[in-house]
Amino acid sequence: MRKIFVLEDLDCVNCANKMENAIKKIEGVEFASVSFITQRLTLEADEKKFDEIIKKVVKTCKHIEPDCKVIL
């Protein structure tokens, strides 16, 4: 399943790249891309575990850039 999320207050490109790398490492994530310019996270992950994966994604983002919020 592929879904696009809005990232609010994503203020730094480097953080966006770090987030992308970290999200890619989460189990079950097939594709992830964080675009600083569009402030979007494109996530492709296992449909059955999607909710669980989303939770991990939010946690990872929070860890890397505490100011940034994933709008679900």
Partner: peptide, 18 residues
């Protein structure tokens, strides 16, 4: 909306550089 998710080689290079 999806366009930004397909990154170019140049972008990947610079990410690695960073």
């Amino acid at each position: 909306e999806n366009a930004a998710s397909q990154k170019s080689k140049a972008e990947n290079f610079i990410t690695k550089f960073a």
